[in-house]
Write a protein that binds this DNA or RNA. Structure first.
Lengths: 212, 212
DNA sequence: GCTTGAATTGAACGCTCGTTCACTTAACGT
DNA sequence: ACGTTAAGTGAACGAGCGTTCAATTCAAGC
């Protein structure tokens, strides 16, 4: 059977993506066979090759698409660079948390399956990742220059911050004792503390007498 | 050839462990074949089965040994529970950083290959991991009760803290611009900020005039 | 109603996988 | 000197792998 109503190529392609994302996130790229993936889609294994030339191409498509979408979404949500760095950092953290709580499998793949990419594909994804990391490092640097944040290495802080935030979707599940609003609040305050925002405006300059 | 001087069973067993740790950390459990592993050890594939009954048993041995050693080492390095929570947290962070900078492959395995364990083995490792996490959560809880840390969920904070610290050995390499002392300092101050220690003793009570 | 061509299939290819087993080697205790 | 036994080998097993391909099905265009 072919081209039956409501099941065109584009739809099948997206079904493959979704099944691959789910399966690979659960058991890993190497542990998912093309036959198993095809079964999940409801199709013969050979059919997959109409949409992706190799198994590797499926993984690369997932990672590449995820990083592209992430960067595009941040480009749209990003506050102006002229704003106060603490606010910019806050906006970033909220964006990152919300975006990835909606896409835990993609986040998982992006970090666990990098090593399953061949050299050329790896370079592409790593560059995209670096450009995302740079966005945060720039905010941190601006905050340090502005005396909003504790002096520190912006790139190291950016990495630490991302690592911390990425840990959230690993354990968070909807329907637990904490909902998304709760965990967002908790992580936002940890982000601020990690960067060193806390001490300045209220506690140090307005709650204390400044002797000069 | 067998039992030639300087190559007894225990030594081979340790060589298998070391090779497996290195290979699996680099390319993943599923991607390492018994033949490839044996080649790395300098032995035929069949010889591996004198030391481990299955491939899965090798992975489990690595993860189990790592967690056992980690918990034992922390048990020996842990400061008394009667000390000030910020100092206890500091001691924990330094311990965690140093321990894992010496064992990046084991840390990597512990987080990336959990999903390659079968159900029974997974439970064992997860329990060990939880008991480690509990150690930090307890320090955080003590610090909150003592007004040393910002009020927060100790278990969530413990997870965020571990996630942040575990990100370090992923990128750190000896011989870069920052040495171990540098990164330890950076991460220690981020840990303190993350927990909410910063504001209290020096900056708020001694560097400011206290109006009463 | 016939042709076209996208969508899909089942069988097959060569290869590698984890694991087993009968067999060999050589250092040790006696 | 000899039997014991730990240590290791090479060939083999059945299964599954990623991938290819000739054949088939069926909606759409003329």
């Amino acid at each position: 059977m072919a081209r039956r109503t409501g099941s065109d190529g584009a739809r099948t392609r997206e079904a493959i993506r979704a099944a691959a994302r789910r399966l690979i996130a659960r058991v890993g790229y190497e542990a998912v066979s093309m036959r198993r993936l095809a079964e999940e889609v409801g199709v013969g294994a050979a059919a997959l090759y109409r949409y992706f030339p190799t198994k590797q191409a499926i993984l690369f498509d997932l990672l590449r698409t995820h990083m592209d979408d992430l960067l595009t979404a941040w480009g749209a949500a990003r506050p102006p660079e002229t704003g106060p760095p603490p606010d910019r950092l806050d906006a970033f953290a909220r964006f990152h948390i919300r975006y990835h709580l909606d896409r835990p499998d993609s986040l998982f793949l992006s970090y666990m399956e990098l090593r399953s990419l061949d050299a050329a594909n790896f370079t592409v994804i790593e560059d995209l990742r670096r450009s995302y990391e740079y966005e945060i490092a720039e905010i941190i640097a601006a905050g340090i220059a502005n005396d909003d944040f504790r002096p520190q290495d912006p790139r190291v802080t950016a990495r630490a911050l991302i690592a911390m935030l990425n840990g959230l979707p690993v354990w968070y599940r909807d329907g637990g004792t904490l909902d998304r609003t709760d965990v967002e609040k908790l992580y936002i305050s940890m982000v601020a503390g990690l960067a060193g925002t806390a001490a300045k405006p209220e506690h140090q300059e307005t709650a204390c007498f400044t002797p000069a």
